[in-house]
Design a protein around this nucleic acid. Sequence first.
RNA 1: GGAGAGGUGCCAGAGUGGUCGAAUGGGGCACCCUGCUAAGGUGUUAACUGUGAAAACGGUUCGAGGGUUCAAAUCCCUCCCUCUCCGCCA
Length: 421
Amino acid sequence: MLDIKFIRQNTELVRDACRKKQINPEIIDKLMEVDKKRSELMQSVEKTRRLKNEANEKIKEASHEERQKIIEKMKELNNDREKELQEIEKKFQELMLLIPNVPDASVPEGLSDNDNVEVKTWGNIREFDFPIKDHVEISKNLDIVDFDRGTKVAGFRGYFLKNEGALLSFAIWSLALEKIMSKGFIPMVAPSLVKEEALIGTGYLPQSKADVYETSDDMYLAGTSEVALMNYHSGEILALEELPKKYVGFSPCFRTEIGSYGKDVKGIFRVHEFFKLEQVILCENSEEESKRLHEEITRNAEEILEALEIPYRRVLNSTGDLGLGQVKKYDLEAWVPSQNKYRETHSASYFYEFQTRRLNIKYKNKEGEIKYAHSLNNTLIATPRVLMSLLENHQQRDGSVKIPEALHKYLNFTEIKPKNE
RNA sequence: GGAGAGGUGCCAGAGUGGUCGAAUGGGGCACCCUGCUAAGGUGUUAACUGUGAAAACGGUUCGAGGGUUCAAAUCCCUCCCUCUCCGCCA
């Protein structure tokens, strides 16, 4: 959510943000109209309230007769405008939730992820001197993912990680957790089952209702632990000394993947249920600080991919690929040999006050003023998605897969051999 | 699932229609005092928001929403949340 004062003063800027994020800019006109009405009504209503309050003061000390007189007078004050104000207020809030944050000037304009700009690549893309297999085939041969029984049990996009596949996941989590904790992140195991307000606070609702599972008792299954972690401090005023607050949350993540029915139907790339370690940061209300930490959390994730020896690239997302609240976003994309392209595995973004306004997360600055904090988040590692790249990039001629050295200390094997050839 | 209790300021906790933005205690902050010294005293200590250049002056907020009333922390309704006991359960 933006500050209405900011919108009033920068109406054209926000209108432009709508255009860039492909939101109908008419919403701004509507908002300004409602805002004007709201201000007028508010002033009128407050005037009436003032009269009432003054009368109340008098009544306290008035004699019986005076009292009756005042009461009669007060009865005549009509309250129609109160109702009107309430209705306008409701409309106002609804609109405010739909107003997008303004993208950073450095964000390239575009319509979709096709317009994202590559800003960095890392690692050498392997030249295979044998016919390569995709991760589905590899994992079947190694008996580390069971898709058939996965769909039998869990339906479309269901899967079981099995044997070394299961162990590999634990090893990756351990590696990632160890690395991020050495940087002062506080480890959290976060709820996935959350209340509606938690999703509104983070900006997933009301916009993206279709992407989220709703339970039979009106709870929701969050698609990321960002939701719970951001809500962790909702309604709080933090001390300056505790900022930046750095959390790494672990949780199962649920996504309906509505709108991508035909995409990535095979394998573990796009599933309804996965696990993720997520970085979430609350920091001071400073653009420089947000930008600095944004680079930092992006690097943190890159270091994990590097430890896993997976070639990747960093892209700067175009305006069309930004969420409602995001100011700027980098995606990390890991190399997938069988598809001969990079595929998204991480998403690092910052929001300025967009989320903290909704969640009411503040802190007291040096001057003692209460400010909204800034928020950022990034994937640290998501499984099983990253396994796709890991398995394919490290596959060997004989069908086995070599385990990257960084994981050895968490496992009692250094390669996975085919079990049924 | 059954039964009960409760949601008030940074915390604890009083308050059952106007004298309550809210007693009292604790904590925080400021100043003072000092041979009862990990002590004593005095004062102070909410957030949001409107008009305004500012000073200032208003408005809102006692879980949320609605209602009764000239007037609601206090009465009524709905919802949410928390806790306790029993049951069930990893």
